[in-house]
Design a protein around this nucleic acid. Sequence first.
DNA 1: CTGAAAGCGCTTACAG
DNA 2: CTGAAAGCGCTTACAG
Lengths: 332, 332
Amino acid sequence: MVGIDEVARHAGVSTATVSRALSGRGRISPQTRERVRAAAADLGYVASAAASSLATGRTRNVGVLVPLLDRWFYSTVISAISSRLLPHDHDITLYNLTEDRAQRQRLFAQSLRRGRVDGVIALSRLESDEVAELLALDKPVVAVGPNPLLPALLVDDVAVGRAATQHLLGLGHRDIAYIGQSRGDESDVPAQRHRGFVQAMEDAGVPLRDELTLDGDFTIEGGRRVARDLLARARPTAVFAASDEMAVGVLLAAQEAELRVPGDLSVIGVDGHELSGVFGLTTIDQFPHRQGERAAELLLAELGEAVAAPPASLPFELVVRRSTAAPASPAR
Amino acid sequence: MVGIDEVARHAGVSTATVSRALSGRGRISPQTRERVRAAAADLGYVASAAASSLATGRTRNVGVLVPLLDRWFYSTVISAISSRLLPHDHDITLYNLTEDRAQRQRLFAQSLRRGRVDGVIALSRLESDEVAELLALDKPVVAVGPNPLLPALLVDDVAVGRAATQHLLGLGHRDIAYIGQSRGDESDVPAQRHRGFVQAMEDAGVPLRDELTLDGDFTIEGGRRVARDLLARARPTAVFAASDEMAVGVLLAAQEAELRVPGDLSVIGVDGHELSGVFGLTTIDQFPHRQGERAAELLLAELGEAVAAPPASLPFELVVRRSTAAPASPAR
DNA sequence: CTGAAAGCGCTTACAG
DNA sequence: CTGAAAGCGCTTACAG
């Protein structure tokens, strides 16, 4: 690889001048700048990342902490982050956080402290000691999704749960089952969506029934399994699944049970997952791509690379497709 | 961040000794090593990536070139790469290659030449000028999937196509439709799978019928659209879709057409996509997770971080589920 | 506007 | 086994 000295020699200037010409920092005459640029282009010179980051303290690299790389939501967000960072010439290094505490410990104690990143975007939910280590880095951090103690980009998931439920209530449903996830604490996304469900039901004066609240672990299979059980023993007219993947599972279970959707059963999900379109699933879209873009913009702003976007809660939107309709009127 | 000087002072040694004690390179007395380690641990010292990579020329970082981050196959492979690299203390920086030629150009001409990576894993198909720039880096490169001119990890996709077709032929099918993708050159995965299909049909002496060879663009929607058309005008007893996503689309189209699977129509896909299990789809699993692991291992070997795995073609395997069966015997 | 020189924080021959 | 010192390739006050 050609270094800055060679460029300096070719352009007949000092390395200081080369650096200034190429970085745009500091005053320099237009002619000199051009001469240097030409020489650099000729030689195919690109400044070494290690050397310039050692000299400046900046890496132009962002760390992204992700729990599961091969999940649609996360890969969509990462893709969006990448697309926003690229124009600002920032790279992404990916840190896959497993459940393995020791491994995570090493990530925070070692990897992140090597100074390889200028800032961090956390898609993973972090433990409080991890948050402490992260903040000790003294670098900008942006979280996507609830992450106590960290500046986070949030969707109002209580409102999301309410909106989904109100859609069903508005269609005339009263026997509504809820499929979510019970473990995790109160600030979790699943818990928030459930709270919205409860609020909407209570507001509508519809009594909650325990046997219609289920745990589907946020996968297609989980949704299907739970719905299979449910439909074998109860006949709700509608199901609100707290994720599109679970909702697709419900659709499959309904089909197995020979129930028509939405004739016999309405189903609504949450996410705006790519599968929701395929299955004609009504959903609350939470625009994960936009979440990634916003996270990247926020971080760039904190890094002084862009102007700060106005802080705002993340948007969501009801997308009505063919999986929801008014309940069949009872035989009269 | 605390630097090496501080550790040296605390341990009462020179920075050279600290470096040796921590890196394990060079001879050092056990006592000194321990003293240094203790001091480093106390102070929470971690060597700066920029400084040590400037000094050694090694970054302990691997670049991964990916065409589409939010596609199951790629995110699965990346996840596997990450899991293999982590134990060797190597990070991943992600380069998302879009279709935008100018952007790609900048990636190869600038980003990759900054010296931020020790090697590259290419999941994207590269143009020949891009390959040239990549090789000019003079760093280890491993490609996953066909990539002319690059050392590549390959599944024998002709054999895959043959295996899928032979499964259907073996069940007694003769009217077999093929859904793939026609654009792209001969070394492409789609073209290879198609060749396998053709070979198996010819070997079995079953004439090929043009009207049963279709283009489904490798998405669920594409597979569905094409299968809808197909089933409206022809009645193959089986469909071989060159990807699981297209095969799922076929399943959905069959359902719309009120055809039973496998009673009226057998369907086989390729990939081992997570959806194949959900839909009971017979498929040829190509173990993408293993592909990522192998790619990482190969690269680590070239970087001198591990012993070379024996080079071998990547495995695949027929997974029979409930979407394939013998054709219904014609009414007698 | 430009250059000489110090400095960023490590690593590693070289000497001892 | 250990240390002093040079060097990795940039950037940036400081002087002029």
